[in-house]
Structures are given as C-alpha cells and as structure tokens.
Write a protein that binds this DNA or RNA. Structure first.
Ligand SMILES: Cc1cc2nc3c(=O)[nH]c(=O)nc-3n(C[C@H](O)[C@H](O)[C@H](O)COP(=O)(O)OP(=O)(O)OC[C@H]3O[C@@H](n4cnc5c(N)ncnc54)[C@H](O)[C@@H]3O)c2cc1C
Length: 458
DNA sequence: TGATACTTTGC
DNA sequence: CAAAGTATC
C-alpha cells in the first residue's frame, strides 16, 4: 500500500507541524520515520542526543495512543530512506527544512534520488523571506529585526487527524542505543507545554528585567524543547498574544526579540555557511590565539578563580544548561581574558549543552569573540567582577554552583581575593588551596586581548 | 546585550 | 568628592 513518509528530524511534535500536515494532505496514510544518523551520535551520546532519544520515545507513545507508531532506523539517511521507500512503496517523503550546512547537503543529495519535499517551520520566517530590498541577506541584527517585524506572522494551527499507518503495518525498527534521560529536562511535549504556560503566566511584565539575572529563574527554560521542535518557535510566539491587536507587554516584547535572534542566527548559517568553519569577519581569521591547554582545562572545569565564570561552567557541566548571561560572560572570558580561539569554546558548549544548536551556538560565540556578524566590538571586554555584581548582586548564583564558596555571604563573593584571610578561613576558604586564585589578572588580560585584536584588525 | 580613564557637574 | 558625562579602546 502506498504511504507518505513523515521524516522526523528536529520537529518532534504532532501539533502545528507543517511537514506532518503536508504528509497528511497527500491523502495517503502517513508513516512516521526517524533515522538515527550514527555519524551525529559520535563519539558518544551527548546530552542533547539523550534528550533527543527521550523525545523520540515520547513521540512514539503519542503515536501509539493513536494506534500507530514510528519506524526507527540507524545508519546513513539516504541508504535507510531508500530501504524504507522500497519496503513501503512510499510515494513521497515530507520533512521540515533544516538550515545547517550538513543538513542542506544531505537533503540535496537525497532529493536527487528520492521524492523528498521540504516544508518551512524551523524558523518563524524563512531565511529567504527576510532580505534587504536588493535581495541580499542582513548581517546587522537591528536591521534584520526591523524587516522581520514588518512581515505578517502567519500561524497555521494544525492537529493531525486519523491519518497514521496502523501499528500492525508499521515496519520493524532497529534497536535504540542505551541512554539515560537528562535530569531537569524531561523530553516530553507535556513538559514543553508546562514550561510555556508557566512562562506565559509569570513573565509578561518581568522577563525584560529578570532575564539577565543569573540568580533568578527569569527565563523560559524552553531552549532544548525549541531546539528539537517538541514545541516550535511559532507556537511559542503565538501564545504571547492573547488577541491579535494589542501590543505585547514589555516582557514579551523583549522575549519576542530573543526569538528573532534565533531566526537571525539560522539566517546567518543559511546565507553564510562558512561561519561554521571560520570567523565571519575576515580580518580576525589571522588573529593569533594563545595555545594554553591548561587554561582551557581550567575554564572547562570551572577553576579560573573568577567565581561567576566558574559558576557558569559548573552549571554547564553539571546540568547541560547555562544561563544566557553566564554564556556571554564565560565566552568573553575564554576569548578575551584567556585569548583562546572561540572555536574551542564552541565545541565544548556543543559537547555539553542540552540545547546545543549549531546556528545559535556559533552565533553566540562569534558574537562574544567579536568575530561575527553584528558582533560585540572587539574592545568590548566583559569584566567578570562587574558582570557578577550586576547580574548576581547577592552572589546566590555563585553559591549555588560553587559549594566551596558557599559560606561566603553577599555580593563580595565575586572578589574573594579582597576578603580578609581570617574571614575566608571562617568560611572554610583558603585561596589557592580550596579555591583557585585568578588564573589571569583581568586588567592585564584585557590589555593583551586589545593588542592581539588590534594587530589582527589592520 | 561594556569597561575604563578622564572630565565635568553639582552639592 | 561622588555622581554623571564622554572619549577611547
Ligand atoms: C556563547 C553562547 C552560546 C549559545 N549557544 C546556544 C545553543 O547552543 N542553543 C541555543 O538554543 N541557544 C544558545 N545560546 C542562546 C541563549 O543563551 C539560549 O538560547 C538561552 O540561554 C536558553 O535559555 P531559555 O530557553 O531559558 O531562554 P529564553 O530567554 O527563555 O529565550 C527563549 C528562546 O529564545 C531563543 N533564544 C534566546 N536567546 C537567544 C540567542 N541569543 N540566540 C539564539 N536564540 C536565542 C531560544 O530558543 C530560547 O529558548 C547561546 C548564547 C551564547 C552567548
């Protein structure tokens, strides 16, 4: 019996899914397929892959509840898709378009051999829909966002009917790899909805003020869910407005802007795929970075001696998530204070983050390093102490992630080296022993970075 | 979506 | 002399 394949990639949801909707509209029964591309899973299962696997199981349960299922095959996508088309007589394959260089090349090849049809949905506006009047892509965020906001947001509310191939006709699946779910991030649609509702109810008038505060839970915590499409960016945007006319409350206005940043970075990776390998700004490709493996190691393990940097890096390592402000601070510290190639940081984040995403992560790193589109100017060097005092004023964030400093009270925790020794001793702290002294002097490191960037810049 | 060194303001 | 403003990186 001919079927249509819904090829699930990073759109792990049934509702408001354009690829699934297109498959259903074909009029044939829909066979949901997920291909575990082993090449993406190497060398070992990272957190985002564990999250993905749990989300697949959750989706499978939803499909089972509808009397269907999902085929899971492991291997090369073209090969496996060919197999499935042969086995099932599928006449078309529907999938949500993905903009990474790897995904585009993969899909390009598959399109030559199989009836693959791609739909929009990863971003709110397609990268080719947000262009300058002359048709070229934007490289400055504010200009991009102005154009983005001028476009009408069309939200197609869809929910699949009984269109799925019955369970007894679903072909065999390969075994799933063993994995442990990611603590704190249940990979379910229900959890995504819960988080969105909680955020909508709590943050319409506070997000813009709380989002930078590392000591508060002022953000949505939706990033891995959006990353793998358990909920889409469009679904999220759609929930911000209770009716179409009113302007957004201040908090949601800023939140909306964050989702535009997301579209912006997807657009950058689409139009400038080379940023995956190298700096967007050509003049910084010849920047001479330091080769300092022990500094990289100290940064990864959160023992740089700057409490706010170390707190962020410990949060990352322990949970797979880091507050946005902490991502900016730790990225600035690695690239400016330690003068280490931003790609080192990019790879470590990708390895650790449960929401790890090439477009957003590469964009964030190139922004922090000053090498990207519309990046922070190279001379914008974060002072980790000032950032800490400003965005973790009472030191609660640091105490949460650095148990060895937990007995130090208040915002002074951001500069433990200024606290008298007897007081540190009372808190069980001995600098250089229980907690490191700063591995670099910030003001000297800042000068060093300015010089290096300056000489590369001309 | 900075920081710093230096100058000016205002009490 | 602290706060506020400004030029520069
Ligand atoms: C160096 C660096 C690396 C980053 N790497 C990633 C990454 O791998 N994956 C990722 O999703 N985000 C990344 N970000 C962006 C941002 O830090 C996270 O999206 C955010 O912290 C996730 O938490 P949240 O869902 O609570 O965010 P919220 O503040 O609730 O934001 C809502 C959503 O908007 C999107 N978003 C917010 N900020 C950004 C941004 N600056 N760029 C792109 N999308 C954004 C995310 O989808 C996020 O879930 C990175 C930022 C930096 C500075």
């Amino acid at each position: 019996m001919p079927v249509s394949i819904w090829w699930i990639r990073r759109d792990l949801r049934l509702d408001n899914n354009a690829a699934l909707e297109a498959a259903q509209k074909s009029g044939l029964l829909v066979l949901p397929v997920f291909i575990l591309d082993d090449h993406l899973m190497k060398p070992s299962l990272s957190r985002r892959h564990r999250f993905l696997l749990e989300a697949i199981i959750n989706l499978k349960e939803h499909l089972a509840a509808r009397g269907s299922g999902v085929v899971i095959r492991r291997g090369d996508p073209l090969e496996k898709m060919r197999e499935l088309v042969c086995e099932t007589g599928a006449t078309s394959i529907f999938a949500e378009e993905d903009f990474t260089p790897y995904a585009r090349q993969r899909d390009e090849v598959i399109k030559k051999h199989l009836p693959l049809k791609l739909t929009d949905g990863l971003t709110i506006h397609h990268p080719t829909a947000v262009l300058k009047p002359d048709g070229s892509p934007y490289t400055v965020f504010t200009a991009f966002s102005r154009k983005w906001r001028s476009l009408p947001v069309v939200f197609l509310s869809t929910r699949p009917r009984d269109c799925f191939l019955p369970a007894n006709q679903i072909p065999y699946s390969d075994s799933m790899p063993e994995f442990a779910p990611v603590a704190d991030f249940p990979g379910t649609r229900k959890e995504a909805e819960t988080r969105l509702t909680r955020f909508i109810d709590a943050s319409s008038h506070t997000y813009h003020e709380y989002r930078d505060r590392m000591d508060l839970d002022g953000t949505s915590g939706l990033s891995p869910y959006i990353r793998f499409g358990l909920i889409s960016a469009s679904e999220v945007i759609n929930r911000l407005r209770s009716d179409k006319i009113t302007t957004l409350p201040a908090g949601f206005e800023v939140f909306n802007n964050e989702l535009i940043w997301r579209d912006f970075y997807h657009s950058i990776i689409f139009h400038f795929p080379f940023v995956r390998e190298t700096s967007f700004r050509e003049e910084f490709r010849k920047l001479v970075w330091r080769n300092a493996p022990s500094d990289i190691q100290a940064w990864k393990e959160g023992r740089t001696g700057y409490p706010v940097v170390d707190a962020g890096m410990r949060q990352l390592k322990q949970t797979g998530w880091m507050h946005n402000r902490a991502r900016m601070i730790t990225a600035s510290f690695l690239t400016k204070d330690l003068l280490i190639n931003w790609q080192e940081g990019e790879h470590w984040f990708m390895d650790q983050l449960v929401d790890g995403d090439l477009a957003a992560n590469n964009g964030g790193w190139q922004w922090a390093a000053g090498t990207g589109t519309d990046a922070a100017p190279y001379f914008r060097v974060f002072n980790p102490v000032i950032q800490g005092k400003k965005f973790d004023p009472y030191g609660d964030y640091v105490r949460r992630w650095l148990p060895e400093l937990r007995e130090i009270r208040g915002g002074r925790i951001h500069e433990p080296w200024l606290i008298p020794e007897y007081e540190l001793a009372r808190a069980g702290v001995q600098l250089g022993v229980t907690y490191p002294l700063p591995i670099v002097n910030h003001s000297q490191a800042r000068e060093r970075a300015l010089h290096a960037y300056q000489s590369a810049g001309r």
